[in-house]
Design a binder for these strands. Structure first.
Lengths: 229, 229
DNA sequence: TAAATATTGTGTCAAATTTACACATATTTT
DNA sequence: AAAATATGTGTAAATTTGACACAATATTTA
């Protein structure tokens, strides 16, 4: 038996939604589409799945090809499959999303020159159903950040509580009391005080913590209801 | 422009994970696969996506064809796409899941005679990666039930708090204090006392409520952190 | 170099929620 | 009529949250 007799095989697209945090605000990475239709318009990073290529691998490849970003952890969001979603030919798009630290990936991005960061509140028109994808991805990110201390994964090896606080405010788009936030974060017991101070901060230097990685991975699923939103 | 030049088009499979609640326990609906490979082995309800068929429509069709179940709300779970997941030919499977009231659909199921309910703690071996799909679906269900008062959707028009309580215990697979549960449920303000009593219950008859549907749909997204688990 | 400014760390207290319980009531069974 | 069973309601301690103020540290400015 070499194949199934069912006649319809479909082009599988992959789209990547990359949120970026610059220490202050949340941004979205977009590129100008370089093929028809909609060539030249703003788009998520998308491509087609290759033969013998796993979905996650394909997503990583598409993202790297278009933006130069390597080794980004991509989480599957949803598959969009309305039969008329692409005017040229039917495609089913499997979407992935991620949240990265903009500074950490600056040099990778600069190499390809295709990616452009946009403020989330000021997005251009996007092709096809890409806006719908972005909206859903943001909602998922908010859920996820509420259920798990996901923010830690985005932080550099050493980070301060005020840095993490800014990230959460950016994700939710509203003010969070920093004193209550600090208490909540420290109560997880996941932060190890390194004794170092953040030399970048302008005035009083913040304590630098590192993540207790063993504890984090062993307890990942225990942190339901991490954050009130 | 009639099609993209990319050469790989792939067979898209659909798999449906149907949980059922019989008033006491949570069960899983399975069928004996009726085509090769793995013919005769236990499987989720699966099929292939047709041309010009939206994903959700295809999922509904596959489920109805195999089990007789109609008008079941299916929620997308995840897309499974490892290139070797099907030994015959590469398929990418878009999975959907649902939770239904077993009694309400008994007659539909009886008509087709293909579906069999299994106790969740006593599942047979499943083909391909179907066990992985079931495990993920249960986890999603638990999340969802915690974040939203999803259980209401499963209840008959008139239902009692003890009925709902049994459902939540079944979903989470552990004891939940019924007094605290009751208080939590009533505090949502979503239940309207009908003044009626449940004539089925063996001893003291429970108060029958109905869902305040207008309030439920308007506030659906407000019920984050609905349930502690 | 001292004062002003900005940022970080910590503490407090009232209100709300959760947790862990017990008892009264209604109905069926014995 | 008594026993058994399921349901509805209450309560008190512990915990968590929400809304605050103030002290400490470093930089900037005068």
């Amino acid at each position: 038996m070499e194949s199934y007799i069912h006649p319809y095989r479909i082009l599988i697209a992959i789209d990547c939604i990359i949120f970026g945090f610059d220490g202050q605000k949340l941004k979205l990475l977009l590129i100008k589409r370089n093929f028809e239709p909609e060539k030249g318009n703003w788009s998520l990073m998308g491509g087609f799945l290759n033969d013998n290529e796993d979905l996650e691998v394909g997503a990583g490849r598409v993202l790297a090809e278009l933006t130069g970003l390597e080794n980004v952890y991509l989480e599957q969001l949803k598959t969009f499959g309305k039969s008329d979603r692409d005017p040229v030919e039917r495609t089913v798009s499997v979407c992935f999303y991620s949240l990265i630290n903009i500074e950490d990936h600056d040099s990778q991005l600069a190499r390809s020159k295709n990616g452009h960061w946009f403020d989330l509140n000021d997005l251009p028109n996007l092709i096809f159903d890409h806006k719908e994808m972005v909206d859903l991805a943001l909602k998922e990110l908010q859920y996820k950040a509420a259920l798990h201390p996901i923010g830690f994964e985005l932080m550099p090896d050493l980070f301060s509580i005020p840095q993490l606080h800014k990230l959460y405010e950016a994700i939710y788009g509203h003010h969070i009391d920093r004193r209550n936030f600090s208490r909540k974060i420290l109560s997880t017991g996941l932060l190890l005080d390194t004794g170092l101070k953040n030399e970048n901060s302008s005035t009083k230097k913040a304590i630098l913590y590192k993540l207790d990685k063993a504890k984090y991975s062993s307890q990942f699923n225990a942190f339901h209801y991490f954050m009130n939103i």
